[in-house]
Design a protein around this nucleic acid. Structure first.
Lengths: 259, 259
DNA sequence: CCGCATGGTTCATTATTTGAACAGGCGGTT
DNA sequence: AACCGCCTGTTCAAATAATGAACCATGCGG
């Protein structure tokens, strides 16, 4: 593993609940020598990717990532285009909606819209990492991914997030087949207990999924009417988002019909 | 210069009007050997910071920067907090408003609000790099920066963006003194011809400026009423933004009074 | 067909990275 | 006051990775 990759892997340790990390913690998390971590973080800091903060001099992500994200959005405006789609969908179905993007072997939930209709709602952390096998979003993406990607995901460790998480590759493959028949993935309590989620893939110009659009609701609120409304609204919103960002679904993606 | 810094410096070549760059172009821009650029870009790609696109395999910024920006915003929500402040200010003054953040020796305009009041408006590029000496935003930041930073900026090459750009350090220092008396910077045609800009600094928790909030308008629309309204509205909005993000102005920052 | 550009690759040489051991500061405990 | 355990930060001989000149394959325009 090259020096650049090692340095960048340090940035992967930051998360929503770990926004500031000290030198010794980074040393433990990364398994690298403290002097090595120190030197790499110093270079990342000089380049603006991290900055030191507080009396204990811990590190956090720096302002340069905002600039690069703005440039990325200028080129591929997936987040800004999705914002209105998420708001409209959330208003229509009255539940939490979110967009997740595939980033390597990871699925990151990057944009959310919350409905004011209920005080109790499913909340997601910023840049939350979702498990492919345990979430509707992940299953939606996998169902339309190439075989090599599916194999890679299903041969990596599949952790149990709740007692309801399906972790056997055979059963997951059967779930993927089910997604392919109707174009929507569904997960009940697979990632978060008592959360019922639906998701559709969002496709790029190469007909490969770049992410997923999902509705997440407390299972107790899934009435027959909601079970009818959510798939239809989600399918339309997903198609709209794919289209708005210059993507196109594969020929095998089903045109939605009422269940 | 370390290997990590060199690799990250490749990312600095991306801009709004250069969102995709080929291997040979990056080699020319960076002055590094093509094999070195190739290896570094490959590592950046494996880490999700860039991706290759199109038939010519050129590079563009990758999805990982979206995730890091989301995490940075979760920790320091400067862009999301500023969004409403910019919208309100833009509605009030009827002109383009934008927030720029200091990133090392650079000032990047990262968030904008446009007013629908006029068809003709000042447009900014995404993540546009502003010149400290030639912009109201830059002057607002410099006026409250430490002496070493001011010296560093004024001893670096100061380019002439328009015939009206002031490039003599002595004159710029006089401008900074003027900003310090009233807490607002003003620039007429210094960066963009016929654009009249006002800006106030936005302060961090350490009373140092982290960026600037600006109003940019065509000079022809600067009526006496606007010349009265804009400084007042801008001063309030800047104070609000500083406060909302946990910052505080230095004791020397003037409490605004009507001119 | 040729010249020139592109993206991509190789491997002997060179430069950089590495990490064990160390330093100083701070807070808590005795 | 002294000591301990942790933190951030530093050094430099040894080890490892990076480097770049030269090369390859492909595509395009004249």
């Amino acid at each position: 593993m090259g020096t650049v990759s090692k340095a960048l892997s340090l940035l992967a340790h930051f998360s929503c609940d770990k926004s500031e990390i000290g030198l010794s913690d980074l040393t433990r998390l990364s398994g690298m020598n403290k002097a090595t971590v120190f030197r790499m973080m110093s270079e990342l800091q000089q380049s603006g990717f991290v900055e030191q903060t507080g009396a204990d001099r811990s590190y956090r992500l720096g302002p340069q990532v905002l600039r690069l994200a703005a440039l990325r959005e200028a080129a591929v405006p997936i987040l800004s285009v999705s914002r209105q789609v998420l708001r409209d969908l959330s208003d229509e179905v009255g539940e939490t909606c979110h967009l997740s993007l595939v980033q390597g072997m990871q699925l990151n939930s990057l944009s959310h819209a919350y409905s004011p209709r209920h005080a109790t709602k499913v909340m997601l952390e910023d840049a939350e990492v979702l498990a492919f096998h345990a979430t509707a979003s992940g299953l939606a993406v996998l169902a339309y991914s190439n075989t090599a990607f599916i194999d890679a995901i299903l041969t990596s460790p599949l952790s149990s997030h709740t007692p309801d998480t399906i972790t056997q590759p055979g059963k997951i493959r059967a779930q993927l087949d089910q997604v392919r028949t109707c174009g929507i993935a569904e997960s009940i309590g697979g990632f978060e207990a008592e959360v019922h989620s639906h998701a559709v893939p969002v496709f790029g110009p190469d007909c490969q999924p770049i992410g997923a659009l999902a509705v997440a609701a407390p299972a107790s609120r899934m009435t027959a009417a909601q079970k009818d409304l959510i798939p239809q609204a989600l399918h339309r919103a997903g198609a709209s988002l794919t289209h708005s960002t210059g993507g196109m679904p594969p020929a095998s993606y089903p045109v939605f019909t009422k269940t």
